[in-house]
Design a protein around this nucleic acid. Sequence first.
DNA 1: CGGCTTTGACCGGCGC
DNA 2: GCGCCGGTCAAAGCCG
Length: 176
Amino acid sequence: MESCPILFPTHHSSSSTSFVQYPSHLQSNLINIVTTYGSGSGNKDDQSKVSGDHGSVVDHKPISDTSDIAQKKGKKQEKKMRRPRLAFQTRSRVDILDDGYRWRKYGQKAVKNNKFPRSYYRCTHQDCNVKKQVQRLSKDENIVVTTYEGTHTHPIEKPNDSFEDILNRMQIYANF
DNA sequence: CGGCTTTGACCGGCGC
DNA sequence: GCGCCGGTCAAAGCCG
């Protein structure tokens, strides 16, 4: 996997097709980028009311409006905190890509159509609610799909060559 | 020792 | 209502 610098096109502009070189030490080659928005998945996120009580998780305040009761009937129309979701596929032998941020694994679940489990990570920051999930495709063991959800509210910790630029581009995509 | 991974339980949404 | 399915929690243990 080493010494195979792959280029991937950034298709943000219709005319100019820029390429970003992928460092070989990342042991991964970017294949595809898909940006979606959390319209379907609700932001149930942390209810902070588990049976374990006094969980005192992050004081994540929901976006409860004044007329939340009235909205409860309508619901699922707007709001839902459309946090941007960015998914990109890489051809890599390792699941965890060092993107410069520190992640804490908080779950691992097996999905139906894939024999490989999906890992859930969260950015280890107090105010940073960025999550990401990593999954390896069952069809191609070499393909790893990494999905980012949210936007970092703090600067990157370990700048990583081109990866920072890639992430920066992704943020641009995510915003609009 | 501290931070992180592991792992089963739990929970909410959705479909039957 | 029940069970599947995907996402999260949290106790315990691992590892530098």
